Computed example of a mutant assay.
Amino acid sequence: MFSRFMPKEGHFFKLFNAHADEIVTGAKALVVLMQAVGQNDAQVAKSTADIDDSETRADSINHEVMALMHATFITPLDRDEIHQLISHMDDVLDTIQDVAETMSLYDIVDVTPEARKLAELSLSCAERVRSAVALLSNMDNGQTILKTCREIDELESDADRVLRSALSRLFREEQDVRQVLKFKGIYELLESITDRCEDVAKILEAVVLENS
């Protein structure tokens, strides 16, 4: 009966890693989606479905983490940190899904280079989130985690610059107000993926600093 009070550290970290894998899978599907729009409708549909599948699997992992946290007497991290980490990770995939759904809702049939670049920056952020999360089980990796988090911050700043440039060109060159509103929304959603990755990075930084 005492087994339920033993720390299940390994399982928590496996779940974090599994969720991070889904974030990268979803971000890769988003890049493919952006490349396929206007070129390959079947691929657009497949990539959208892939993103939905990743988000569904990630939701299941989120629920499993929450259930495990409530069933475990000793957790490897502070309970609030666990909650914030998995919730912010979930926000990344939710935002990726929002982009895909908005592309469909707005009936976007052509994608700008800036939108593709923002999707690529989102994937780069997602990959670094996965790298940092994979190191979290050992605080000897603290400095490497912090370095990876700084890289996420830099990528988020890059995305900000791409967003500003994209909006500037959109307002200068696009005459159709409906298209302006559509692409403004898509650009801002794409950039917010990197914001959500930065939120994860801040939690990881806090965990490292608290446990160093």
Rank of each mutant, 00 (worst) to 15 (best):
E154D: 14
R150Y: 09
C149L: 01
A134F: 05
L167P: 12
R169T: 14
L123V: 11
E154M: 07
G142K: 11
D160R: 09
F171V: 15
N141L: 05
E151V: 04
V133G: 01
V162L: 13
R169G: 12
D140K: 10
S122E: 04
K147T: 10
S168F: 12
A166R: 15
R150D: 02
T144Y: 00
L136M: 11
A126Y: 05
T144G: 06
I152K: 01
A132T: 00
A134N: 10
Q143P: 01
L167E: 11
L163K: 06
R150G: 02
L135V: 02
C149G: 02
L123H: 06
D153H: 07
S122W: 03
I152T: 04
L170I: 14
S165A: 08
Q143N: 08
D140S: 12
V129M: 01
C149W: 08
R164P: 06
D140I: 00
A159D: 07
V129Y: 01
S122Y: 03
R130W: 03
R169P: 13
M139D: 09
D160S: 09
R128Y: 02
S165D: 15
R164Q: 07
L167Q: 09
S137P: 06
G142C: 09
A134G: 05
E156H: 08
L155W: 01
L135H: 04
E151I: 07
E156C: 05
S165F: 06
E156M: 10
N141E: 03
E156S: 07
G142E: 08
A166D: 15
S165V: 13
L163E: 03
L135I: 04
M139V: 12
V162S: 12
R169V: 15
L167V: 11
A166G: 12
R169N: 14
D160G: 10
A126T: 04
E127L: 06
V133D: 00
S157M: 15
E154G: 08
V133P: 00
E127V: 03
V162W: 09
L135F: 04
A126N: 00
R164I: 15
R169D: 15
R164A: 13
L136H: 01
L167K: 09
S157Y: 14
S137E: 02
N138E: 03
C149P: 04
D158V: 01
D140A: 13
V162A: 13
V162R: 07
D160A: 05
L136K: 03
V129H: 05
R130S: 10
S124Y: 08
R130E: 07
Q143A: 05
L155A: 09
R130T: 06
E154S: 12
S122F: 01
S131E: 08
D158Y: 07
C125A: 04
D153C: 03
L123A: 07
L163W: 07
S122C: 02
D158W: 07
T144H: 12
A159W: 10
S168Y: 15
R161Q: 15
T144P: 10
N141H: 09
L170S: 14
V133W: 00
L123I: 13
C149I: 02
S124H: 08
D160I: 11
K147A: 08
D158N: 07
R164S: 12
V133L: 00
